[in-house]
Amino acid sequence: MPPEDFVSITGLSFAYPGGRQILDRLEMRIAPGQVVAIMGGSGHGKTTILRLIGGQLRPQRGAVRVAGQVVHELNTRQLYLLRRKMGMLFQFGALFTDLSVFENVAFPMREHTALPEALIRDLVLMKLHAVGLRGAAQLMPNELSGGMARRVALARTIALDPQLIMYDEPFTGLDPISLSVIGQLIRRLNDALGASSIIVTHDVISSLKIVDYVYFVSEGKIAAQGTPKEILDSDIPFVRQFVKAEPDGPVPFHYPARDYREELLGPHAAR
């Protein structure tokens, strides 16, 4: 019998009020210790999955189970307790701009624990050391580069040693060096903490190097899944287009429209 999944998603459907269907009967499972990537084009509900796991949104149908608990059935207090086992890295870090790097990392500890100041200081410096930014402790967030801000946010995310770390587009807008630094950190921290990680991304090259398993999401459904090797060798047209970064294919270049010739030359065309 395989080990209990840390996160399991069953029959998950979600639509914003009055909007189109974002997720449609999604199935997904993440085992403890795994790093899983969720890939897909922009606007296909990848970030929505993370928000559903974190309990910031409620699904219309289906359920998300984290550590055996159904997220949307918890009351506020239970949800907040569950969230202490989670960490989430937002797309641009979401550092608190009015607090220094040190205070940002110390924030979850100050809010949730009554540790003495000396211990908080040591813990913060350890977390910052893990992301290589111990020397930047006294800087303010606006003095950091994009890659550094992301690493500080990562240190804050792991401040309370979460069992599940979620990354929302961690590779966006980074230079190649920062890119591989973040990639390495995600893998190393996951293994060091014995946690599970979910990476939402559309950066195929960076993520395939570090993940154990990949889900491709398209139009609210799982379009493909497999290990990185299976994905690279896949002959599913959608996956091939994505991995090879071809502009046209199953994901069309054109937004659905009337026939081009008819629109330009037809009876309604401008004279």
Binding site: Q56, L81, M86, M88, A94
Partner: peptide, 18 residues
């Protein structure tokens, strides 16, 4: 408003801080 736009409020919620 800026804290909301830069997801700082969301980040706080995910850190189990209201």
């Amino acid at each position: 408003g800026l804290m909301k736009a830069t997801e700082q409020l969301s980040a706080m919620e995910m850190m189990a801080v209201n």
